[in-house]
């Protein structure tokens, strides 16, 4: 009985604080994305204005993000029936957008990010993942 109460408390805390944390994170992501709109990131290697390049170097950004206990249990239940695991979709979305934002923040002043690659790695069994985004920041001649 004690275990059950403990579990319910964990799920409850996970649900309320987790939702709050996620909302706050999304708000911050959207704000920063709007600020960095001037810097396009493309997954293509081709550069249209080859002659104008002044400098190019590698940049990368990473983020390790964990899901909350409520969603972790929800995903576990989903595993029984199969189908789309919406609980983890937002986790991956947040981590990817955060990693790309950090990459762009490191490349401030650049004109374009070429060959952007995103890589995902599982950190632990309990629903935390690492996302790494890397690309080449290109600075045009002014």
């Amino acid at each position: 009985m004690g275990d059950l109460i403990y579990l319910i408390i964990l799920i409850g805390v996970g649900y309320f604080i987790g939702t709050l944390v996620e909302k706050k994170h999304y708000k911050s992501i959207e704000e920063r994305e709007a600020k960095l709109l001037y810097l396009p990131a493309v997954s293509s290697e081709n550069l249209l204005e080859e002659k104008m390049v002044n400098e190019a170097h590698l940049v990368y950004g990473n983020a390790v993000i964990s899901t909350d206990y409520f969603k972790f249990i929800l995903a576990g239940l989903r595993n029984l029936l199969g189908g789309e695991v919406c609980a983890f979709e937002t986790l991956l979305d947040r981590a990817r957008r955060e990693a790309i934002l950090r990459l762009k923040e490191k490349a401030q002043g650049a004109d374009i990010i070429l060959n952007l690659r995103v890589e995902t790695c599982q950190i632990s069994q309990v629903g935390s993942i690492e996302v790494l985004a890397y690309g080449t920041a290109v600075y045009y001649k002014k």
């Binding site: 604080i17 990473n62 964990s66 955060e98 790494l132």
Partner: peptide, 23 residues
């Protein structure tokens, strides 16, 4: 610390730093 974060969710800053440093 990370296992607490596993309950409420959010970024594991110490791991982000660790991975960044190792990379």
């Amino acid at each position: 610390g990370a296992s607490f974060k596993n309950i409420v969710g959010g970024e594991l800053k110490s791991y982000t730093a660790l991975m960044d440093e190792s990379r």
